[in-house]
Amino acid sequence: MCFFKKMSRRTLVQALIALPALSLFRKLPEADAARAGPSRADPSPADPNEIVEVNGWILKRSDLA
């Protein structure tokens, strides 16, 4: 489970819409970052264009930044 799922979705979406710069979300606490999926926890330098599947999302690795 990711950190944000603890918040109500409504609250989260309101926060998302209200905040123009969401640096808050970009800097996950390390423990939560590790829980967000193996690709996030991987310390090795990886191709930012690599296609990864995380929580059902088909993403570019750089999307996870």
Binding site: F4, R9, V13, I17, A21, L22, W57, L59, A65
Partner: peptide, 21 residues
Amino acid sequence: VKHVIADLACTAPDMAEWVAY
């Protein structure tokens, strides 16, 4: 859409931000 954004925010916050905008 809100649900999708909330879900995306868990995984790819930058993208979620863009979509929320």
